[in-house]
Nucleic acid binder design. Structure first.
Length: 228
DNA sequence: CCAGACGTTGTT
DNA sequence: GTCTGG
DNA sequence: CCAGACGTTGTT
DNA sequence: GTCTGG
């Protein structure tokens, strides 16, 4: 699955030419432990069909029909295999797809009673885009909130030892079609929701300090067990 | 018809 | 909003 | 994902 | 153990 991830400075730079930001400059900053319910940058199609937009949204999708925000915490992932049918995701899949920029993500391996955190990133690139859905929600009190979820698929061979699920990583050549800036039939979009080649991924054990969502600095990525 | 759910992952 | 279960 | 709480009463 | 909050 994907329950924590990283977007470092190199990752931000990697998307600067693909998307333009309307957010205050300070909001888009390196993050080393993005956790559910926090705000994070996502990329959506521009209304005018031009350069895609990078905007901050809350992680945890609240469907437009929800009466309160209580669904958010459990809607951090959507199964790629079933999202076209689920009431909460069907609408967003049809009209509100997004990219979630990342440098890497964390997975916890269960060792008996203990859980050991690992950091997973790509060997071929400092950044990648995860497939996501977003939703614009308005509370009964009239407050607006933009939220998103990260799509998962079965884990590939690189991650099978850690988990059964992993986030969908989209190749740059598919980004515009996923966003809807280039036309694509539903079946074609669904076909993108599969695991990437295992050779593309590298992983390493990291400090248990990542367990705390409040820990958020570059030192979290230091490998452990190498006598450093 | 109305009421109630609407999700994922991991663990047993 | 829309589907399922009663 | 992990960390941390895990309650009731009365009032609006 | 299970739910909520971040």
């Amino acid at each position: 699955m994907c329950g924590r991830y990283v977007l470092d400075n190199e990752g931000i730079i990697a998307f600067e030419k693909f998307a333009r930001s309307e957010e205050a400059a300070g909001l888009i900053r390196p993050r080393f432990n993005i956790a559910p319910t926090q705000q994070a940058p996502v990329i959506v199609k521009a209304e005018d069909g031009g350069t895609p937009l990078l905007r901050m949204m809350y992680w945890g999708l609240i469907p437009g029909w929800a009466r309160d925000a209580s669904m958010a915490a459990k809607m951090i992932n959507a199964r790629g295999e079933t999202l076209a049918e689920k009431p909460s995701f069907r609408g967003p899949f049809a009209s509100s797809r997004c990219l979630v920029p990342a440098s890497g993500f964390y997975e916890w391996r269960k060792d008996g009673t203990r859980k050991t955190p690992f950091y997973i990133s790509r060997r071929d690139s400092p950044a990648f885009a995860m497939a996501g859905l977003f939703s614009h929600w308005r509370s009964p009190e009239g407050e607006s909130r933009d939220t998103f979820t990260i799509i998962t698929t079965e884990a590939n061979a690189a991650l099978a030892g850690l988990h059964e699920r992993m986030p969908v990583l989209l190749e740059p050549g598919d980004w515009l079609r996923w966003l809807g800036a280039e036309p694509a039939p539903k079946e074609e979009l669904q076909a993108l929701l599969r695991p990437c080649e295992p050779e593309l991924l590298g992983l390493r054990e990291v400090s248990p300090r990542v367990n705390s969502p409040r820990e958020d600095d570059a030192a979290l990525l230091a490998p452990v067990g190498l006598g450093l």
